Amino acid sequence: MLRLGSRLRHERPTGALSSNKLGVLSHLRRHGPSTPSAIAAAEHQQLQSLTRTFAELEADGLVTRSPSPADRRSSVLTVTEAGRAAFARDLAQRDDWLAAAMSGLTEIERQLLVLASGLMLRLADAPGTAPASGDAATCDLLVHSAQRTPTPTHHGRPGG
């Protein structure tokens, strides 16, 4: 996951949105209008760390801020159409690269990626807790075993 994430970051276009801005816009697209506190918690960041990001997104017209109907001391952020378009533009180059990279996969490999991506999203959204005694060792074992597993060949090309 780290290598793929690094490669996808490398495929970012010049002038791309910051990772914090992408995270906020992504959260708002997936979950709808949210308070800054809820976004910060979902992004595993301190609210103060995202204050500037929220202000810049609002100044750029990518989000709107309105008073919370539940608590007038709080605000709710909503992604705008311009925000949706900026998010889509930012992801387009990476999507193109990923589609080209996946074109060499078999149908079964693509289906496996769809299944794995759903599982990774579930894991990413799992509540935070301290690992049970064997969980960390199990994770280490899985990672190290995956690193030792030979890459399958496809049409005579390693990993392709």
Rank of each mutant, 00 (worst) to 15 (best):
T14D: 13
T14E: 09
T14K: 04
T14N: 06
G15K: 11
G15W: 11
G15C: 09
A16E: 10
A16G: 14
A16C: 09
L17E: 09
L17C: 13
L17F: 10
L17G: 10
S18P: 08
S19D: 15
S19I: 06
S19K: 06
S19Q: 12
N20H: 12
N20I: 05
K21T: 08
K21F: 12
L22S: 05
L22V: 09
L22D: 00
G23Q: 07
G23R: 03
G23C: 08
V24C: 02
V24F: 00
L25N: 00
L25Y: 03
S26W: 05
S26K: 11
S26F: 15
S26P: 06
H27W: 09
H27D: 09
H27C: 13
H27F: 12
L28N: 05
L28K: 00
L28T: 01
R29H: 09
R29Y: 05
R30S: 10
R30N: 05
R30W: 07
H31N: 12
H31Y: 14
H31Q: 14
G32S: 04
G32F: 13
G32Y: 11
P33T: 03
P33F: 10
P33Y: 04
S34G: 06
T35K: 02
T35I: 02
T35Y: 02
P36V: 08
P36E: 10
P36F: 06
A38K: 06
A38Q: 11
A38F: 00
I39V: 15
A40T: 04
A40H: 06
A40V: 00
A42D: 05
A42K: 00
A42G: 11
A42L: 05
E43M: 11
E43Y: 03
H44F: 07
H44N: 12
H44I: 04
H44T: 13
Q45C: 12
Q45V: 01
Q45M: 12
Q45P: 02
Q46S: 07
Q46V: 02
Q46T: 04
L47N: 14
L47S: 15
L47E: 15
Q48C: 08
Q48I: 09
Q48N: 13
Q48D: 14
Q48M: 05
Q48F: 13
S49P: 01
L50H: 03
L50M: 07
T51Y: 07
T51A: 13
T51M: 11
R52W: 04
R52C: 02
T53N: 06
T53F: 09
F54R: 06
F54E: 03
F54Y: 10
F54V: 02
A55L: 13
A55V: 14
A55Q: 14
A55I: 09
A55D: 12
L57D: 05
E58K: 15
A59M: 11
A59C: 12
A59L: 13
D60K: 15
D60I: 07
D60V: 08
